[in-house]
């Protein structure tokens, strides 16, 4: 009945019935970036995202949890570039960076995007597929005042950075999905 009462226009898409989210099947390896795959473990919804090499997954919706894939971030480029922002709005990745610098890069990027009290902790070595990488935890307060926790895994090769970043509401959602995310991280491998 409600369909008869009003027409819904997807304004910015210009058409109705546009599908913004695509299913990520749990049991098929999913490509991330040009060279890597992961095993999703569970069903996710994927949406395009304007990062350097953008892709973004969610389980319950973007306001509740997000898994970002920043792959092949080149030296001299930022991890995230938002439409309409100045070129140097975000900090750049540098080839000379070590793990501690990359951790700061993520912290500063998150801060520049409007999060408060961003803090990265517990930096530790981790396997990024066959490569030696590192992992750290995050906590922050989002713009709307929601406390958020995160997990990041990254590795560097030549002049490029690969990083996966999971963020979720501290209340319930982070602990709920963390085991799955850790398995996704552990499944990173070259295609």
């Amino acid at each position: 009945m409600w369909k008869r009462c009003f027409t819904v226009l997807c304004v910015t898409f210009g058409l109705s019935g546009c599908a913004a989210y695509v299913l990520v099947e749990p049991d098929q390896p999913a490509a991330i970036g040009a060279e890597l795959v992961v095993d999703p473990q569970v069903s996710w919804a994927r949406v395009a995202y304007p990062t350097t090499n953008g892709s973004l997954w969610t389980i319950d919706g973007l306001g509740l949890n997000q898994l970002y894939f920043f792959t092949e971030v080149e030296a001299g480029k930022p991890m995230v570039r938002i439409q309409g922002q100045a070129k140097d709005a975000m900090p750049f990745y540098e080839e000379s960076m070590i793990a501690t610098d990359v951790m700061e890069l993520v912290e500063t990027t998150l801060t520049r995007l409007g999060n408060q009290q961003v803090e990265a902790t517990n930096l530790r070595p981790a396997k990024f597929g066959p490569r030696n990488g590192f992992q750290f935890d995050l906590t922050m307060t989002s713009q709307g005042g929601l406390i958020v926790k995160g997990l990041c895994i990254a590795a560097q090769r030549d002049d490029e950075l690969d990083a996966l970043l999971f963020l979720a509401a501290e209340e319930y959602y982070y602990e709920l999905h963390r085991p799955v995310v850790e398995k996704v991280f552990a499944s990173i491998r070259p295609e």
Binding site: T12, F13, C18, V47, A48, Y49, P50, L62, Q83
Partner: peptide, 8 residues
């Protein structure tokens, strides 16, 4: 996709 995200 990009417009979609600007909206999102």
């Amino acid at each position: 996709a990009v417009t979609c995200c600007a909206v999102l």
